[in-house]
């Protein structure tokens, strides 16, 4: 009985966070913040859903499968976000008007897309 209720609560929280993630992707003002919503709230939500499924089935073999999906998603979501974020910055995706500072401005090589080596603390806080 207790496990049943626990799994229901977990599934509900998971669904809610996935809803929040989609709303964030729709509403956030610039690409980077949409990426925030997609990477985190969605991964968090699906984490809860999978935990709920693992508790619901309660069998070792199935729960381990659910947990391995969870682990895999937690390992890959940041990588995908990093790739998209980097590509977006190189494509000069505009930052939101309220962005306070941008330490990355002008650091990319135009041709090779390499970040120039920066040994001392960069202090070019350019207002955008």
């Amino acid at each position: 009985m207790f496990w049943d209720i626990l799994s229901k609560i977990l599934i509900l929280i998971g669904g809610f966070f996935m809803f929040v993630a989609a709303l964030g992707v729709l509403r956030m003002p610039d690409l980077y913040m949409r990426l925030h919503a997609n990477t985190k709230s969605a991964t968090f939500g699906i984490g809860f859903l999978l935990l709920g499924a693992a508790v619901h089935f309660g069998e070792f073999a199935i729960s381990i499968r659910a947990l391995s999906i969870l682990l895999f998603l937690f390992a890959t979501a940041p990588v995908a976000a990093h790739m998209i974020g980097r590509a977006a910055y190189i494509a000069k995706s505009p930052l939101w008007g309220g962005t306070l500072s941008d330490d990355l401005a002008g650091k990319y090589d135009k041709k090779t897309h390499e970040l120039t080596a920066e040994i001392e603390e960069p202090k070019a806080a350019k207002k955008n």
Binding site: Y32, T39, A77, H82, G85, L100, L115
Partner: peptide
């Protein structure tokens, strides 16, 4: 970098070539 990306409010964008600096997009940084 992965942990930074997973904590909401921060997203790692890139690491400089000499691995000295990591560039992070943060959402709440007064």
């Amino acid at each position: 970098a992965n942990l930074i990306s997973l904590t909401p409010g921060s997203l790692s964008l890139d690491v400089s070539n000499d691995k000295k600096v990591i560039y992070v997009h943060v959402m709440y940084a007064e």
